[in-house]
Simulated assay, not measured.
Amino acid sequence: MRIVDTHLHLVYQERVRYPWLAGAPALNRDFTLDEYWPAAKAAGIEAALHMEVDVAEADMEAETAFVTGLGAPVVGAIAACRPENEDFPALIERYAANPGVKGLRRILHQSPDELGRRPLFQENLRRLAPLGLTFDLCVLARQLPIAIEIARAAPDVQFILDHCGVPNVKDQALDPWRADMTALAELPNVAAKISGVIAYGDPANWTVADLRPFVEHTIEAFGWDRVVWGSDFPVCTLTADLTRWVAATHELIAGASDDEKTKLLSTNAERIYKITA
């Protein structure tokens, strides 16, 4: 069954700067398309969206230009942005001129909680709708109420919640994550991404059973028409590898129909992110 990976990170340190990598020694090296693609292809991945890698702010557009120029299997990019900045409208006009840019993201889980609540931040996000650009929400589980505020403030924008809302899988902390996910799913302009969860389990010994309640509740809350899949490569390599995460995904959805599996693994991504062949 073909897979569209909606969350591929590539690292090319000679091209752009990644300040955060200095504090992440296990990831502080290049992760190239040549490394990703053989394992991805063998696992059934046929296309991928590049997800911005929190590069230095001055390098955001350079990263986007580079990855959208790579060609197949990279079919588009989620570009970095700063909605809190006054120059955001000009930035997104430049992004919108690049057909490879499908959406934007501003990481919030390492930012002050008030950032996403700023009036300018929310006003700027509303500018994405006329341009047909999505916005990926990357928040901690405790920040899900903030994600609800952001999505509610821009009802015409398509949002995608990354990593099942970053739950604490290791401690099986289902609540209040579960209630907050249900509340977020009530907003029709939000979809959820089944990605990243292996990074939040026991790094030495996570199991599919550990992941199951979080993945199943996400799918139950959002429904099969509003879920997509992502590898979170290379972050997934911290606790497993791409092959194992794909295998775990297939095990998690084994009881679903072929139509439901196809929606999660490819067709929802193509519709939500406007990916064309």
Score class of each variant (00 low, 15 high):
30 D>Q: 00
30 D>H: 05
30 D>S: 00
30 D>F: 03
31 F>P: 06
31 F>N: 04
31 F>I: 00
31 F>Q: 06
32 T>W: 01
33 L>M: 09
34 D>W: 12
35 E>L: 13
36 Y>E: 08
36 Y>I: 07
36 Y>R: 03
37 W>N: 02
37 W>M: 00
37 W>Y: 02
38 P>V: 10
38 P>F: 03
39 A>D: 14
39 A>L: 07
40 A>H: 04
44 G>W: 03
45 I>G: 02
45 I>Q: 01
46 E>P: 06
46 E>K: 13
46 E>G: 15
46 E>Y: 07
46 E>S: 14
48 A>T: 10
49 L>D: 03
49 L>A: 05
50 H>L: 10
51 M>D: 09
51 M>V: 15
52 E>N: 06
52 E>A: 02
52 E>P: 04
56 A>N: 12
56 A>H: 13
57 E>V: 09
57 E>F: 05
57 E>Y: 06
58 A>K: 15
58 A>R: 12
59 D>P: 10
61 E>R: 14
61 E>G: 09
63 E>Y: 10
64 T>Q: 02
65 A>D: 15
65 A>M: 14
66 F>A: 10
67 V>P: 09
67 V>R: 11
68 T>V: 14
69 G>F: 06
69 G>I: 04
69 G>L: 09
71 G>I: 04
71 G>H: 04
72 A>F: 00
72 A>T: 04
72 A>S: 02
73 P>V: 01
73 P>C: 02
74 V>L: 00
75 V>K: 10
75 V>G: 10
75 V>M: 05
76 G>H: 06
78 I>K: 06
79 A>V: 12
79 A>T: 10
80 A>C: 08
80 A>D: 13
80 A>R: 08
80 A>H: 09
82 R>E: 13
83 P>H: 07
83 P>I: 04
